Simulated scan of single mutants.
Amino acid sequence: MLKRIETLFAHEAAGGVVLIMATVVALILANSELAALYTQVLHLKFTIALGETGLSKPLILWINDGLMAIFFLLVGLELKHELRAGRLRTPSNVVLPGVAALGGMIAPALIYLAFTWSDPLHRTGWAIPTATDIAFAVGVVALLGPRVPPALKLFLLTLAILDDLGAILVIALFYTATLKPVYLALALIPVALMALRLWLGAHRIAPTLILGAVLWVLVLKSGVHATLAGVITAFFLPIRDRFGKSPLHALEHGLAPYVAFLIVPIFALANAGVSLNGLTLADLAAPLPLAITLGLVLGKQIGVFGATFALVKLGLARLPEGTGWLQLYGIAALAGIGFTMSLFIGSLNFEADAEMNAVRLGVLAGSLVSALVGFAVLRLAPHRAKTGR
């Protein structure tokens, strides 16, 4: 029995399935007699204080700012690994998915702005439909098995990783509150100590992670979004130590199941609870949810597929081996599954319940349509397509 459970959780689609289950539970709670309790629990305040200094936040912000910092730590570990020893190390492997990722961020943002430009409050959420959820997208691809060529899976993974990098840059540049220079200056101290430890070749990672926790508090106090502390910490962890082992790789593999099966589902449980009571087509057609839905569905398809098509036709790149245009279009559709990162960016933009409910509605609708379209296209596409130009 234990072996069967381990095999089940080791499957590529397992993380996506758990994420779907957490989303369904959130929707049930938000639309049941427990809705008031669900909201009340998420807004319970938790305080950690030392004397008169401390942090006091509602539970949902501890999840979004705290637990998601661990999520971003894992993203940072994956990025460093790929840049130093993986597929992002070779520039030729980055060109096609890199341009596709860029197109997949620009087109959704433009579509979103086309629907919200007249509203100064809503247009600040332009980055919401620019993200791709790796767990969901890879989960759908895993369900298709050998119908998706290995090179195309690699293309999707690289695109999603670069998409995450783009999201990190967007958060750093556009989601910074009023800066507090004193805390920002203090944050340089743990960064300098982490850099010193890396330069000295220190192989123990616990001190660096403790410094990362200190950095998280200082960055949070400075006005810069605290989750970026996770990414910064990851880049100061060594890929190789003096014993020939990889602390970074070990931490990446150790964290991955906790992030996939605990942290991200908790985030979904806290953020995906959209109230469907009294929902009408007019609500779906309101500017904010419609902008997000169309940004994810049409924007990602136009951006990812269009950028790839242009690059290949100009002779600057080739399609992934064994891949046809229809299959690539299916992957472009799957890139519109924005769930985790889209909800996260939405929470950075809007605090009011009405706006966040609209964001959840748009993200869920856009991600669901993208998943269904992508799955259907890849399911119907020829199993063995010729590599094209």
Rank of each mutant, 00 (worst) to 15 (best):
L196E: 11
L218A: 04
I171E: 07
A229E: 09
F236Q: 13
V224D: 04
A177T: 14
V231Y: 04
G212C: 02
A172K: 07
T233P: 01
L179D: 07
P181F: 01
L193I: 09
A226C: 09
A192F: 05
P238F: 08
Y175R: 09
P190Y: 00
V219E: 03
V182Y: 12
R197I: 00
I171P: 00
L179W: 08
L198F: 09
I232F: 12
A195L: 11
S222T: 12
G230Y: 05
A229T: 08
P181D: 08
I205F: 08
A187S: 14
T227D: 07
A185D: 05
L211T: 01
Y175H: 14
L215S: 01
A229D: 08
V182K: 11
L209K: 03
A213Y: 03
G230M: 09
V219H: 04
A172V: 13
Y175D: 06
A177E: 15
I239V: 15
I205Q: 11
S222D: 10
G201I: 05
L173D: 09
T178P: 13
L179Y: 10
F236D: 13
K180G: 02
L186T: 00
W216S: 02
T233V: 09
L193R: 00
S222N: 11
Y183K: 02
I205S: 14
A206M: 15
L237T: 08
T176D: 07
A172Y: 03
K221M: 13
T178A: 15
F174G: 12
I171A: 11
L196T: 08
T178V: 15
V182M: 10
L173M: 14
T208C: 07
G230Q: 07
L193W: 07
V191Y: 00
A192L: 11
A229L: 10
W216T: 01
A206D: 03
T208E: 04
I239P: 00
G201E: 07
F235G: 11
V219A: 01
L200T: 11
V191S: 04
L184F: 11
V217S: 08
R197N: 10
L196K: 11
L215E: 01
A213D: 00
L184I: 02
M194W: 05
I232C: 03
G223S: 10
P181K: 08
V219F: 05
V219I: 15
L209G: 04
A185E: 02
T176I: 12
H225E: 12
F235D: 08
G201A: 06
A226Y: 06
M194F: 01
A187W: 02
G223V: 13
S222A: 13
A187K: 02
A195E: 01
F236I: 13
Y175I: 09
G212E: 09
Y183G: 06
H203K: 15
P190G: 05
A229S: 14
I239F: 13
L228K: 06
V182E: 12
L184Q: 06
L186N: 04
A234M: 10
L198S: 06
L186F: 12
G230W: 05
A234C: 11
Y175N: 09
L218Q: 05
F174E: 12
P181W: 04
G223N: 10
A195G: 13
F235V: 11
